[in-house]
């Protein structure tokens, strides 16, 4: 089985994960989860709700402790083991090398801070120069993610923007420092279909233009199929199938994957 999980590929992977994780009252949330993300690749991590996808994301950022969990194993990022990195080193990696687009756009924005302040904070975490220079970059970035790039927008509070806008703000925030790896945790789940489409296009563009690897976490197989190069299927903390996206959707080998695909109303109807 491990053969399928580690497809032979010439280049050195950007991220190589081999993980187990526990929560205090829930052992075995992740059970020896192994996968690679290659540089510039979009890897999908699919699975049912509660299967442990967000936990994987937190592990990679080494933030599982914040939620009270603990992890073991190895996370090789650019040849370095993140599991062994100090908190100080991790601060340098988070937001600059690896970024996160969190699951629920509204609760991920701080209700007491203006949009501009939050963007500035994310920028400030890895920049020392004058805010004015950073601000120009951020305004361009907002334009890039189809947000109004003006002062007035920056002055708004999260309660004054739509969910789609909030999601874009989070994406912009995640790519400020042009990370090598972007972890997007179900970034489209709260959006309507059209907006979803736009966001997916945005990811594709970011991946193309910035050569940014993306770990795209989702239970939405449709979006996965359209966006991702490869996919890994997670069931109750285990990777049950991993391979090229088309291959998995067309010839699912694991029964769980089959059930996932069968559950899709659209695919059933398409001949």
């Amino acid at each position: 089985m491990s053969e399928t999980l580690h497809p032979m590929n010439g280049s050195h992977p950007l991220l190589s994960v081999s993980l187990s994780a526990n929560y205090p009252n829930r052992p075995g949330v992740l059970d020896n989860v192994c996968f690679d993300v290659k540089s510039g690749e979009i890897l999908a991590l699919v699975g049912q709700s509660g299967s442990g996808k967000s936990t994987v994301a937190l592990c990679i950022l080494k933030l599982l402790e914040v939620k009270g969990g603990s992890s073991s194993g190895a996370i090789m990022f650019q040849g370095r083991d993140i599991e062994k990195a100090t908190e100080r080193e991790m601060r340098g990696i988070r937001g600059r090398e690896i970024s996160l687009v969190p699951q629920s756009p509204h609760s991920a924005l701080n209700p007491a801070l203006r949009i501009g302040t939050q963007l500035k904070e994310a920028w400030r975490a890895h920049a020392e120069d004058k805010w004015e220079s950073g601000k120009q970059g951020i305004l361009r970035l907002l334009e890039n993610v189809d947000l109004p790039a003006d002062e007035a927008f920056l002055r708004r509070y999260p309660s004054q923007v739509s969910v789609g806008q909030a999601q874009r703000v989070l994406i912009a925030m995640a790519v400020i420092h042009r990370p090598r790896l972007l972890i997007a945790d179900e970034p489209t789940s709260a959006l309507d279909l059209l907006t979803q489409r736009e966001v997916l296009d945005l990811f594709a563009r970011l991946n193309r233009e910035l050569n940014m690897a993306i770990l795209y976490i989702s239970h939405d197989l449709l979006s996965v199929a359209s966006l991702c190069h490869r996919a890994a299927v997670l069931e109750r903390g285990r990777i049950v199938e991993c391979g090229a996206a088309e291959q998995i959707f067309e010839h699912p080998s694991h029964p769980y994957t089959k059930r996932l695909i069968d559950a899709l109303p659209h695919l059933q109807r398409t001949p």
């Binding site: 988070r94 991920a108 924005l109």
Partner: peptide, 11 residues
């Protein structure tokens, strides 16, 4: 969530 995100962006 927002505290988690702030940490995830290196704060």
């Amino acid at each position: 969530e927002f505290a988690l995100l702030a940490r995830a962006s290196g704060c």
